[in-house]
Simulated assay, not measured.
Amino acid sequence: MTDATKQTIVLVHGAWADGSSWDAVTRALQADGYTVLVPPNLLRGLADDAAYLAAFLAQRTSGPVVLVGHSYGGAVITNAATSAPNVAALVYVNAFIPDEGETVVQILDGSGSALAVEDPTTIFDFVAYPGAPEGVVEVFLKPEVVHASFAPDLSDADRWTIAASQRPASLIANVTPSGEPAWRTRPSWAVIGTDDLVIPVAVLRRLAERAGSTVSEVAASHVSMVSHPETALAAIRAAVAAV
């Protein structure tokens, strides 16, 4: 076991979010004396996003790292850590934990997710972006989806802030097959929001069990680290203490 203050905790946001989704967790960990980094997640495609995070880790960290991902950020940390030997542990917060060859879309297929709909135009706004591959666009959550499905346990003001400031994801991000999973060679922890409507609880439990993660559950929505940061903090602190 290493001195906790010598470890770096890296928090990775998911789609339709940014680093501010980790604000409560970041402040608490910094108050504990940890070095905390919250890099941007490009949301341009799993291979590119993981490569960016791996390069960030190589250049911005030294010593052991506890790598934390929310939602799609879980897929990113699963891939990035395979080429980041200083990652000592993984923490998944309401997150995808893919196996090799899986995509986010495949994981959600038939799950009852609020995002697994026949007509995506009912929940997404589509926007072209410069440099995108032909036929590829970014997707924003419609405000009513943020309110009803993404963050229903936050205040009305917080939900409107998320709807206004969301960082969109390229369509490529959710259909790119995952690579070799780092959870096969790293210990992992998983926080499950039992009221998650984006990644339903049955899916979260199945993924965590497959990865052999140490699980904690909380009655919270998809953004449990915002509505109940103490649960994410407990899992992160446990990971730090164990490695």
Score class of each variant (00 low, 15 high):
28 A>K: 03
208 A>Y: 01
24 A>M: 02
8 T>A: 04
98 P>Q: 00
59 Q>E: 15
227 S>D: 00
241 A>P: 00
236 I>F: 01
197 L>P: 01
105 V>H: 07
27 R>F: 11
243 V>I: 12
164 A>K: 14
39 P>N: 13
213 S>I: 00
101 G>Y: 04
13 H>Q: 14
91 V>I: 08
238 A>F: 07
228 H>K: 14
131 G>K: 05
18 D>Q: 02
30 Q>S: 11
191 V>E: 03
77 I>M: 08
12 V>M: 09
133 P>V: 05
95 A>H: 00
176 T>F: 09
223 V>R: 01
74 G>N: 03
25 V>S: 06
223 V>G: 04
90 L>K: 01
24 A>Q: 14
48 D>K: 11
114 A>Y: 07
129 Y>I: 07
204 L>V: 03
31 A>C: 03
53 L>T: 01
188 S>G: 15
17 A>L: 14
207 L>S: 01
153 D>Y: 06
190 A>S: 04
124 F>H: 02
195 D>V: 00
79 N>E: 11
100 E>I: 10
198 V>T: 05
62 S>A: 12
91 V>A: 12
136 V>R: 09
4 A>G: 09
43 L>N: 14
104 V>N: 08
104 V>F: 13
108 L>G: 03
28 A>R: 07
118 E>H: 12
138 E>S: 13
179 G>K: 09
172 I>W: 11
82 T>P: 02
217 E>L: 03
51 A>D: 10
7 Q>G: 05
38 V>D: 04
41 N>C: 11
66 V>N: 11
29 L>R: 00
64 P>S: 06
125 D>M: 05
226 V>L: 15
8 T>N: 08
95 A>S: 08
134 E>S: 11
77 I>A: 12
12 V>I: 06
204 L>S: 03
241 A>W: 04
139 V>S: 09
87 V>K: 03
66 V>W: 08
75 A>L: 02
225 M>R: 05
83 S>I: 15
238 A>V: 05
158 D>S: 15
212 G>Q: 09
186 R>L: 13
47 A>P: 03
235 A>E: 09
126 F>V: 03
14 G>W: 03
201 V>E: 06
144 E>F: 15
38 V>F: 13
229 P>I: 12
199 I>F: 01
165 S>H: 13
21 S>Q: 13
37 L>A: 05
161 T>C: 11
140 F>N: 13
19 G>I: 06
58 A>T: 06
166 Q>S: 05
200 P>A: 10
43 L>K: 06
67 L>T: 06
92 Y>C: 06
78 T>A: 10
165 S>C: 08
36 V>L: 15
235 A>S: 13
28 A>P: 00
115 L>R: 04
59 Q>H: 12
226 V>F: 12
197 L>H: 08
235 A>I: 06
14 G>T: 10
243 V>Y: 06
13 H>T: 09
188 S>C: 14
144 E>M: 02
20 S>N: 11
183 W>A: 08
223 V>T: 08
118 E>T: 12
2 T>V: 14
237 R>Y: 02
172 I>K: 13
58 A>H: 13
181 P>R: 06
207 L>Q: 11
212 G>Y: 04
190 A>P: 00
31 A>E: 12
138 E>C: 04
7 Q>N: 10
61 T>V: 02
178 S>I: 10
228 H>F: 04
106 Q>T: 05
27 R>D: 15
180 E>M: 08
42 L>P: 12
39 P>R: 02
73 G>T: 04
